[in-house]
Design a protein around this nucleic acid. Sequence first.
DNA 1: ATACACGGCCGTCTTACTTCA
DNA 2: TGTGAAGTAAGACGGCCGTGT
Length: 376
Amino acid sequence: MELGLSLGETTSSSSRQQTFTFVDKPSTTSTTATKMVNNNKGLGFCMSLGLSGFNNATEEEQQHHREREVRKKDGRNDKEKRSTDLPDPSPLQLDLLPIASVPRNPAPSTQGLPWLSENAGSSGQLGVSVRGFDVNQSPSTEEVDDGAAVSSPNSTVSSFQIDFSIYRGGNGNKRDSETAGLNEAEADRTSSKASDDDENGSGRKKLRLSKEQSAFLEESFKEHNTLNPKQKLALSKQLNLRPRQVEVWFQNRRARTKLKQTEVDCEYLKRRCDFLTEENRRLHKEIQELRALKSSQPYYMQLPATTLTMCPSCERVATTTPTTTTTTTTTTNNSGSAENSTTTTINTPIASGFSLTKPRYYPFSHPHPHQSAAPS
DNA sequence: ATACACGGCCGTCTTACTTCA
DNA sequence: TGTGAAGTAAGACGGCCGTGT
């Protein structure tokens, strides 16, 4: 099985040019996670040591879901579970490349993101992505030992794994760079999280993803905000994370995007409410004025109407000068011929300038054509 | 029709990190 | 300048639900 991740630019006509291409070609109809487990076995991507024997990420996923189902039936609460759960069967992940092959002092991070490398897409993409990582921290003794023990220089995927496993924890922020000792401890926690949990029973330990890992995930999220099992597995391998971590990251990312959109919607509705309130107040005032005018002037006076027009592309409403009393709107059917016409006459003056278009949250700076014209 | 596996969403907890007094 | 409290961001988890087999 060849499993790769093409990060180069595509010829797609879409606005986003960077796409992940999964070249995983399982032998037959191995589309389910279960079958991928079988395909992965023996390839040495995520070799593990532990009492429960071989374990890989997809198995862990299935185990995760089985545990969820079991807990569902179990009915035990969280606190009980954290203290009484059986040990996680994924004990210790090993890195499969000799530590000596990892550059200790790569170029500074100003060289750009790993996936933007010119060499991305080749078999060496995994190693290339090392550039820009903070490697001032030494790998933990445990990692060195493990890596030296079972390393496989022929595995490019494993070389990528070890890259991320070593740099994980050195996420480039100030505190991390100042506390190398903490990074070591964190790296240990990360590389053998399950084991630690098993040992001290302290429950979940939060891993802080490195900037590079987060950026990589962000790029992937831009392409598709959901992952199929293959993509999840490929990403997890690329980033040396457990598939569950990738899955959780995408879940949280979707939640954050949705929350942001909710905030945008809320802000829009608030402005819309304010606008309508003001409009209502103005119309009431005008009615009073008209009534006063009518009572003082017995002759009926025809008022000019205000015409509303709507932008067909974005449904933005604009107000024309009240010189005409009617407007004719012609809609066309699919064949392009005129289908029907509607005439709208509005006898009430209306303030212009508020878009009826619901705003969209563009997490990746995709501006709406009329966004700049929207009222502030 | 039913059971099951699986994945997404939601609410929540927890932890790392930042800000401020 | 160091420190602890409060706030925030984000990783992780369990439960629920919809969908496909």
